[in-house]
Every structure is written in C-alpha cells, then in structure tokens.
Nucleic acid binder design. Structure first.
Lengths: 210, 210
DNA sequence: TACATCTGACAATGGTTCATGTCAACATAC
DNA sequence: GTATGTTGACATGAACCATTGTCAGATGTA
C-alpha cells in the first residue's frame, strides 16, 4: 500500500502520469476526429496512444470523459484563436465580425479533426445536452453578443431578443461550416465569410433601424 | 419451403406484415424520441411494439434502418406541414417566410418526439453524413431558396451564394429550435418567429439593395 | 548487488447486444 | 377434425466491450 513515488526514465511520477494523459488526449483527437466517437473503443485509443488499458482508467473515468476533455481542449483552442484575431478590439463591430468569422472558418479548415469533434461528433455522445449547450453554443453566443451586437443601440421593440439572435447567428456559422466540411472544404473561406457577413450585416442594419 | 400465404385474424399476409412494421415505427418514434437513439435497444423496441425480435428483422435490417425510417417519416411530416401552411403561395415572400417559420416552430413544440429525432438524435447515428445532409438540411435549404430568396433580384455581386445563404438561414432556425427545445419550449413561438424574421428580413434588404 | 517500484502484455470477468434458431400453441382453410 | 401456415416465448451463440487483475521483466535506488 505504501506505493512510494520515484523517478523513472528521468521523469517524476507526476510527469509520467501527465505524459500518459497527454498521449491519450492526442489519441482522442486523432481517433475521434477521424473515425468518430462511436467507432472508437478504449482499446483502440490505448493502442494509438501506445499505452495499456490500465492507464486509460488512471486518467479518465470512461470514454466519454476523454471525449469531453478533447472537446474542451479544441473548443478552447478555437475560441482563443478567434479572440486573438480580434486585435485591435476598438475597430468597428462589422470589421471585428469579419475578422472573427475569417479566423473561425480558417481554423476549422486547418484542423479537420477539430472540425469533426466540435461540429459533428459532439452530437453523438450521450452527454447531458444542457452541458453541451453551455459548453459550446452558449460560449459562442456570448462572443457574438459581446462583439457583434453589443455596440448597437438598444432596440425599442422589446421582442428583440439578443440572446436568441446571437444563437441564430451562431447557427448560421455552424450550419455553413458543417456543410463546408462535408463537402470537403472546397470553397474558399472568404466566400463563407462574405456570405455570413451578408446575414450579420443585414441584421445589424435592422437593429440599427430600430 | 413452400411458405404459402394466407389470411390470419382476418388480415392478409401483407397487411399483417405492414401492421407489424407500423407498430415498430411507432415504437421508434416513442423510444428514440424520448430516450434517444443510443439508449434504445432492439429488444426494447420490440417490447414497446408488442412484437418479438424475430419480426424486427423481418422489416428492418438493423436499428439504424428503423431510425432512418422514423427520421424520414418525421421529416416528411414537418416539410409537408410547412408547405401546407404556405397558402396562398402568391403572397409576398416576407409573409410566406413568417408563415413557414411559425408552422415550423409550432410543429416542433406540438411533437417533442419529432423535435428530438430531427434536431438532436440524428447526430448520434453513425449514418453517412452526406445522406444526413441531403435528407434534412438540403431539403430545408431548397425550401428556403424557393420561397424566401427566389423572388429577390439576382444580386450583381457574384460572391453572393444563394445555396450558402439558404443553408445559413436554415442554421438560424435549427439553432434557435435546438436551444428552445433544450430549455423546454418556454418562450412563445411567436418570439422565435419574430427574431428569425429579423435575420431573414435583414438579409432580404441586403440582397434587394445590391 | 539487492530490493522496491513501475511498466507493458495479456488474462479474466461480467455484461450487453445483435441476430438467428427452436418449438409448442394457436388460427385458419379444407 | 386435420393439416398447415402463423405467432409468441424463449433459447442460443457469437461478438464486442469495459473494467479489473495478474505477473514477469524493466528500471531506479541504496
């Protein structure tokens, strides 16, 4: 029971453990991103990671937990990339929106595994839908609200629902991105950005008009 | 081997077979729509249908095929309801769009099982993505193109992509509907319609302008 | 070197599901 | 009534998977 820790291959116990976890995450990106969640078993993940099943359960309770970790990583990556693309932040909202959208589509194209995990596979897990929603759409929706819709005059008509509108705009991006991914990223990202902006801008005009 | 067919309980062989298939479909609507695809086994489906597993494989190759049949049924129902709501067809597009959207959201609220199957569970099946796309988003996208975007002047700028824009508008509806369903249909449908129309109308203005 | 810890390969267990098969009881036609 | 098609209950077996356990050998420590 007195499992003392010690270095092994020049690494501390924590470092070894962290590296195993990292390798499992990488295996998750690869397998989930290429074959999908349901086509990937724990055994396959371990084989890809070069580990035994025993070490899988050292870091994750089950397959879904690993997927959730992969999902969160990729979502953070994407959101951070978008945020960084929004420099300088004091530009007009219309330009910020275009910059953010451009980053969004290019990031998905550059990392198709991420695209599949974020856009498609997430729907396949049995994970609680509330959490899914909060994790992804909600965060994007907040981003859209803060950047694209914030600086508009508060509309008089109280039926306008900024959260709902932001959700709708996120839906535009996701739906276009899904279609784009399914068709193999054939169109240039600028084309997607341009057509997104048509919808974003149209809504902006409407809101500005009252 | 000479399996002759004959009436049984006053029904022909085909009628009995069709009824069994129908009961399995109903069981699918219920189980898939309430518990989800992955939480539903063939055995459970058969129990709900009041049939034995043997008869499951009489009508469907596997669980996914039954799900696909359920999905197609519900999708047809929804599209047909929307089409019927668009009478008379010679109204201005803006009104047609509103009528169609209103029908869309109300239909989802009235049949939450359908909503779950069409909006959520479909992503959980391992079904080929191309087919999924063609089955649902593509058909809705065509509808949007034909009704809402058709009568607008052909825009001069050739970067405008009507298919892409229609896909984006479908994304608005789906994303809003998903959120609405997850939150338990709390908001009145009119509110969703109104905010959808804000986006639809804004795009319409943009296209008309240029 | 001697000993404790760590690792990887693999076995074992227990569970689930799909898909097919068996067979006695039932309904119908003749 | 009898033969035959039909049905439902249940059995069967194969396959797969998650999860835990075992153990010999590798690696570090003293």
């Amino acid at each position: 029971m007195s499992t003392k820790k010690r270095t092994y291959r020049g690494q501390s116990s924590e470092a070894r453990r962290a590296e195993r976890r990292h390798r499992l995450l990488d295996a998750g990106f690869q397998m989930f991103g290429e074959n999908g969640f349901h086509a990937t078993s724990v055994k396959q993940l371990c084989q890809t990671a070069g580990l035994t099943e025993r070490y899988f359960y050292e870091s994750f309770k089950n397959r879904e937990e690993l997927f959730a970790a992969c999902y969160d990583h990729k979502l953070d990556d994407l959101l951070q990339a978008i945020l960084q693309s929004l420099q300088p932040l004091d530009r007009p909202p219309i330009e910020l929106a275009e910059m953010g959208l451009s980053c969004f589509f290019q990031a998905l194209k550059q990392d198709p595994q991420m695209a599949r995990i974020l856009l498609i596979e997430i729907y396949g897990t049995q994970y609680d839908l509330q959490r899914l929603y909060q994790r992804s759409i909600g965060r994007f929706s907040m981003l859209v609200q803060n950047i694209a819709l914030k600086q508009l005059p508060r509309p008089s008509n109280r039926s306008f629902d900024m959260e709902l509108l932001a959700t709708g705009l996120v839906g535009v991006c996701i739906q276009m991105a899904q279609r784009w991914a399914i068709e193999g990223y054939q169109q240039p990202p600028e084309r997607l950005v341009m057509n997104c902006m048509l919808i974003f801008g149209g809504l902006g005009d409407r809101l500005a008009a009252g």
